[in-house]
């Protein structure tokens, strides 16, 4: 780690500590302009043994706890890298140094499972039903809905599914590890639009590495880090795929499609139907977008083009933030 990076990080640590309460939101808005800070922080997280790791983790947690969206997004930027760092240390059964990363991850988790008043949060999701009128349709014009048992059972009901409440966690155990990590990825995915290119790249790498380490494909990918197999859970892979899908469509098509392949590879070996389903659908829909016919779309509007627009936007959006860190080297 260069002295310069160290200086940048130390300055960042000191600046926030002396910041008056009232200046937090204006400070948050200026974070993006600190071009050399983000790469320096990545270095700190990657070099697990740095003395700066603990204060950095602490400050990232303070950022998250502040509730200021910009600061929370800043912490989330590093979530994939932190997850990887934590998982690689855990799988190596190296008790060193992951303490502060663990504490940060658990801290963010425990903040996210409660609402502002400290009550357990229950996330709800309404499953729309065509038998109820919506802003986009009128049930009578939909025509005959298939009269299946399920359709009858749900007729006229809008079903709401809930997730949570989740338990507070004081420590990681093998049993709760992936529940916590899956939930953290869910939080990351909820803020995907605010994530920058290096963060999305780091997410793709996390996906690839977690899935292939210790398997023959690791040689194919020429990754020379850890070679022990890491346990994964099906829900964790589904959340990974969700983030990878976004990366894939928003400027990271190479790393993204590689990561998708790797997750699918692992899902096959684990015989997990859920990530296989979602991953296959993503692959097929991207493929289909190119081949799409122009029957339904008028000539003006060749199908699937807006995916390019998104890519286009994303590339321009992420470019000026900071130079690409050399993530490629490790592969």
């Amino acid at each position: 780690m260069f002295a310069m990076d160290q200086g940048v990080v130390e300055e960042w640590l000191a600046e926030f500590k002396t910041l008056p309460e009232a200046a937090v939101s204006s400070y948050a808005a200026t974070l993006k302009e600190k071009a050399s800070l983000v790469p320096a922080l990545y270095k700190v997280i990657r070099e697990n043994y740095s003395d700066l790791l603990e204060p950095v983790c602490h400050q990232l947690f303070e950022f998250y706890r502040s509730g200021e969206p910009h600061l929370q997004h800043f912490t989330l930027l590093f979530l994939p890298e932190l997850l990887w760092s934590y998982l690689s240390v855990t799988s190596g059964r190296d008790p060193h140094c992951s303490g502060c990363i663990e504490a940060l991850l658990l801290g963010v988790y425990n903040l996210e499972i409660v609402d502002r008043d400290g009550q357990s949060k229950v996330l709800s999701f309404t499953v729309p039903s065509l038998s109820k009128p919506s802003v986009y349709h009128e049930p009578s014009t939909i025509g005959s809905l298939a009269l299946t048992e399920g359709a009858l059972a749900n007729h006229g009901l809008s079903r709401v599914v809930y997730s949570g409440p989740h338990l507070q966690r004081e420590t990681f155990t093998a049993q709760n590890r992936f529940q916590v990590l899956t939930f953290l990825l869910l939080c990351y995915n909820a803020a995907l639009s605010y994530m920058t290119s290096p963060s999305l790249q780091s997410l793709c790498q996390l996906g690839s590495r977690v899935c292939i380490c210790g398997y023959p494909r690791q040689h194919l990918r020429r990754y020379k880090g850890i070679s022990t197999r890491m346990t994964v859970s099906s829900d964790f892979l589904v959340q990974l795929i969700t983030g990878i899908h976004y990366a894939l469509c928003n400027g990271e098509s190479d790393l993204g499609s590689r990561a998708l392949e790797d997750v699918l590879y692992r899902a096959q070996l684990e015989l997990y139907p859920e990530p296989l389903l979602v991953g296959n659908a993503i692959k097929s829909s991207l493929h289909g977008a190119v081949l799409k016919s122009n029957k339904e779309g008028p000539a003006l509007h060749p199908g699937g083009h807006h995916a390019h627009f998104l890519t286009h936007i994303a590339q321009r959006r992420h470019q000026p933030v900071h130079p690409r860190p050399s993530l490629e080297e490790t592969w």
Binding site: V127, G150, D235, T242, L277, V278, A281, K292, K295
Partner: peptide
């Protein structure tokens, strides 16, 4: 093709929310 694109997207949406029965 147009139907299978719709079904693929449905899979992505429902899978994200774990609604496999409906899927």
């Amino acid at each position: 093709q147009s139907a299978s694109v719709v079904y693929d997207l449905l899979t992505i949406a429902l899978g994200r929310r774990g609604q496999y029965e409906m899927l």
